[in-house]
């Protein structure tokens, strides 16, 4: 057989082997056996010295051609096998994506804190500052400075925990405002503040009464503050807290520290005013009390009521949370049952 024929036979045989090989190792062996230093092609090339000068380049070039052809076929087969192997490996690594993920721990802020911060944000954005103050107060600041002298019938509206004849647990956060008013420097601008915090009333705890609850009171004092400003401010705030579509209604009321005093209702956020169990059929829900700061209160804080006026308001985060989520027992806020607290994990958009 001529060299050429030998080479052709070798080529065809090897191509078949490559085609049939199933593993990389096998393919490698074919490469070594066929193209290696001891392989048949090298052998052929080595035997060329016996050929004539005319034949040598022809056979040589043909042998190289076959070697390149085989090399390329092996490479191609190798890529093919590698891909197969990878696919097989990936197939084996397949997991059940429906198995549960690893436990990640994140706590939840208390729903009252969430509600209070939501309210605080609205006022912070309107340039109010937050003042917390003391939970134990002097009778003088809690009552007298709020225009409630000793034995005033309004004291019955707020049953009080006394500590001594002078000290008590604050029944509202208003004393914080009295203390802030007396130190405020109006040459540096108007006073705009809110005072959030715990307050206490001498009540027996039941589903709707708690001896401890929270309040956020607000106060604005400046020249020419009007009742219309109060109305406008509350409209902005309540729409932010309860939704743009809420209507707001002011009803006359009485607080010793404001005059005129109003109670503020919003149209029911559950039924929209049709009447339901949340609004007890009235279509309205009472959400806060407010009014124009009583001139006596301003005067006692060293502010000239003929020059300055102000408005004040107070709302109850506990009540708001109860209304919003349908919590029907105020004690749940202070028992801290994990199953209660963790329901408020979802960060809702307002």
């Amino acid at each position: 057989m001529s060299l050429k024929k030998q080479l052709e036979a070798l080529r065809d045989e090897t191509l078949q082997k490559i085609e049939q090989s199933e593993a990389l190792q096998e393919l490698n062996q074919i490469r070594v056996e066929t193209l290696g230093k001891k392989g048949p092609i090298t052998e052929v090339l080595r035997g060329m010295k016996h050929l004539s000068a005319e034949e040598r380049p022809v056979v040589g070039s043909f042998a190289n051609e076959i070697r390149d052809h085989l090399t390329e076929s092996i490479e191609e087969k190798k890529r093919e096998l590698e891909e197969l192997a990878l696919n097989e490996a990936l197939r084996k690594e397949t997991i059940d994506v429906t198995l549960p993920g690893k436990q990640i721990h994140e706590g939840t802020s208390h729903i009252l804190t969430q509600v209070m911060e939501e309210i605080e944000e609205v006022f912070l954005n309107m340039g109010y500052k937050i003042v917390e103050g003391s939970e134990v107060e002097q009778d003088y600041y809690n009552f007298e400075r709020m225009n409630i002298p000793p034995n005033h019938p309004a004291r019955d509206m707020q049953d009080t925990f006394y500590i001594s004849n002078q000290l008590l647990l604050r029944t509202h956060t208003s004393p914080v405002q009295a203390r802030t008013m007396e130190t405020h420097d109006f040459s540096k601008g108007p006073l705009r503040m809110i005072s959030p915090g715990k307050v206490f009333r001498r009540d027996s705890d039941d589903a709707t009464h708690s001896h401890q609850f929270h309040q956020i009171e607000g106060l604005v004092v400046d020249e020419d503050i009007t009742m219309a400003d109060l109305k406008g401010t509350l409209e902005v705030v309540l729409k932010q807290l309860f939704g743009e579509e809420r209507d707001i209604r002011l009803r006359p009321s009485y607080f010793p520290f404001t005059e005129p005093s109003v109670e503020v209702d919003i149209s029911c956020f559950k039924c929209g005013g049709e009447g339901c169990n949340v609004c007890k059929g009235s279509g309205w829900i009472e959400v806060l009390g407010a009014g124009m700061v009583h001139p006596n209160v301003l005067e006692m804080s060293g502010i000239d009521p003929s020059k300055y006026s102000g408005f004040a308001f107070g709302l109850g985060p506990d009540r708001m949370a109860m209304l919003r989520y349908g919590v029907n027992d105020i004690r749940a806020f202070y028992q801290n049952d994990r199953r209660f607290l963790e329901q408020f994990k979802i960060k809702e958009l307002n």
Partner: peptide, 29 residues
């Protein structure tokens, strides 16, 4: 203040205008 309250309630709180406090801006925070 007592008289103002009488005027306001008989006039009707519904009919009061809604405005925002004018005054200088103070940054709260």
């Amino acid at each position: 203040a007592d008289l103002i309250e009488e005027v306001a309630r008989i006039y009707g709180y519904d009919r009061l205008p809604s405005t925002l406090p004018k005054g200088t801006y103070v940054s709260g925070g």
